[in-house]
Amino acid sequence: MSRIEADRPVKPVKGQTGVRSPGRANIAARTLRTDKWWFQSALTFTLLSLWVLYATARTVSQRAYFVEKYHYLSPFSSPCVTASCNPAARDFGTWFPHFPPFLPYALIVLPFLLGFRLTCYYYRKAYYRAFWSSPPACAVAEPHTTYSGETRFPLIVQNAHRYFFYFAMLISLINTYDLIRAFRGGNGGFGIGLGTIIMLINVVLLWAYTLSCHSCRHAIGGRLKHFSAHPVRYKAWTFVTKLNTRHMQLAWSTLASLTITDAYIALVSGGVFSDLRIIH
């Protein structure tokens, strides 16, 4: 094939497309990278899979999600608005009758939280690489014969990320409310325990992750063409832009903080150890 013909649309043939296309340098190897290019994807695959397994197990277990004495409510079960919840955890009322086994108590928000993470620009990069090998790493040939990106259903739904972001803001408010309730002593007054501190760190990280979202950056000011005409939004955009450069780190930190918060509450609730109290 001549050079001029090279980028005409051609029907892809397995083994003869991509880096093995006619006209390109004849190199059989899918990559000549000598570093451990597979490591990043393998690590992402492992950590995300473990997190999903943990979160699924904990949300369907319907157990050890609440410490009534200090009002520690696990973020995996908040808001607790079913009759199956401990009555003290139902601060927002009882919206649903008893849930059957295996139905997560936070069913009302989990689809939005899941949607927010699934359509997140960082997680997209992570799971496209780690779970779909598209591509497995930079300059490493992917195994797929054809590719249409995010132009068709279902992946075109990624464009709804901003709506999940709006819901995530609301859910962060609920998490903040849970945190305020966790400043409670054993006698019912004000108190702080290690659980409160862990919940505080979790909520700060959740807010930072949510606000560092690319859709937030766009809505707050990125969509403008004329920054000088909108100085306040420009300032806000500058702040979110700084956070946005840490979006990946925040994405992973929040997975860790959610897990630690839930595990701590589960262990205290299950009586494995008692909460370390700082004040009352």
Binding site: K11, A141, H144
Partner: peptide
């Protein structure tokens, strides 16, 4: 990878 791995794109 959109063009590197898919000449047709």
């Amino acid at each position: 990878h959109v063009v590197r791995d898919h000449e047709e794109n």
